[in-house]
Amino acid sequence: MRTIATVCTLLLVAKGAVAGEDAVLDIEGETFITKTAAPAHMENVDTIFSGWVFRTDETQALQLDDFDNPAFVFVDQALDQWDTAEGSAGKACSSCHEDVSEFEGLKAKLPRVENGELVTLTNLVNTCVTERMGAEEWSYSGSKMSGMTALIAHQSRGMAMDVKIDGDAAPHWELGKEIYYTRVGQLQMACANCHEDNYGNMIRADHLSQGQINGFPLYRLKNAKINTTHGRFKGCMKNIRATPYKEGSAEFKALELYVASRGNGLSVETPAVRN
């Protein structure tokens, strides 16, 4: 079994490489790392690939030029939101933060543990919204939040993902890993069955990627909007007829940390484009 799995993985890696061989993700003169050696903690995978590598030429092309990338409509809306006062304090993001560019590097390190709690970019934004602006919490994957997190994550575009998995992050990372390998739903599949054992293979019309999140939040042609990491996790779980965890739940945050760590070394691509 082990041998078969290994042979398959080798074939798949070769295949993945072929699919992306000629494709170089180069945006405005900057070359992105879409393929690199897997981080040391990964036991069954040697090389990690961005989901971009597995998309069709047409979908890939949309990410090569920011003018063609439909995500930027939403990023621009978030820039307006950045200056919009909300809540009892009468403040906007720009009342406290000089420029959104001050968040350069933030996304590459998230999620991370703060005061004993695992926090995502969405949590950090909501802390400002509720505690500093005195406004109602933004819904986890709503349009305001997905746009704002895309705008902030975009400031780290091109930087390598580098989440911390040891120390106080370790218990969350372990939980995320357990979820990643647990078979769930009526189809009894784990994330690993598709994104570790079968990346590079077609599953009906879909070319399976490694399920990396370095491009999130990202634009999907399927629903013509910005999609969040937890929204994607939810979609994959529903496809295997499993009850998803809630967006923003401890489980999905832990899974986000674990999946992010599987992409340590890939460039942040936010906002990426997928089908």
């Binding site: 079994m1 069955n193 009850t243």
Partner: peptide
């Protein structure tokens, strides 16, 4: 095929977190 990804098409128990309707 122990451990296969292929779903079992004629079982009705042993699912983890199935969607309620299934």
């Amino acid at each position: 095929f122990p451990g296969t990804i292929m779903p079992a098409f004629y079982i009705d128990a042993g699912y983890e977190r199935p969607l309620e309707k299934f």
